[in-house]
């Protein structure tokens, strides 16, 4: 055969290569490939689990956030309510204090008026007593009309002062 071609040797080469193909496929290629697929599967599962866990935690976070918002709303409501109550209580207290103060002031005024009236009355009485004493003294020591007129003026002036 030209170029050293030999069909027997070609078939021997073919047999050798097919044998090698089978050996490499079953001993090397398939187990390594299977392991690579297995690893891919493991990582895919892990990724899936991670994604599911992430989804769950996102869901839980949303729930907690909703609960927190709800709690915040409740707290704000309670705060507003207690604020209102405190304001009402404060208003009541202030009103009561004002009423009390007004009452005290009124009582004080009344008392002051009473005391004033009593003092004036007492003063008038004292003045009257003084005047009476003075008049008696004057009547005893002076009998002139002039002195009597003076005496009357003094009395009048004393009354006017007492009124003011």
């Amino acid at each position: 055969m030209p170029l050293g071609l030999n069909f027997t040797q070609i078939f021997l080469h073919l047999f050798n290569f097919l044998l090698l193909f089978a050996i490499l496929y079953f001993l090397l290629y398939k187990p390594v490939k299977n392991f690579m697929v297995h690893r891919q599967e493991v990582y895919r599962k892990e990724a899936e689990e991670t994604s599911q866990n992430l989804e769950k935690s996102e869901k839980a976070r949303a729930e907690y956030e909703e609960k927190l918002a709800q709690a915040d709303r409740e707290i704000a409501g309670l705060k507003a309510k207690s604020g209102e109550e405190a304001q009402a209580h404060y208003d009541r207290q202030v009103k009561a204090a004002k009423d009390e103060a007004e009452k005290i002031l009124r009582d004080a005024r009344e008392e002051a008026e009473r005391q004033k009236a009593a003092i004036v009355q007492e003063a008038q009485k004292d003045i009257s007593d003084l005047v009476t004493d003075a008049a008696e003294k004057l009547a005893l020591h002076q009998s002139s009309q002039e002195n009597f007129e003076k005496f009357l003026d003094t009395v009048e002036a004393g009354r006017a002062e007492a009124k003011n």
Partner: peptide, 11 residues
């Protein structure tokens, strides 16, 4: 070897 090369090409 030409026989080996022909085998590989034809296979």
């Amino acid at each position: 070897d030409i026989n080996g090369a022909i085998m590989m090409g034809c296979t």
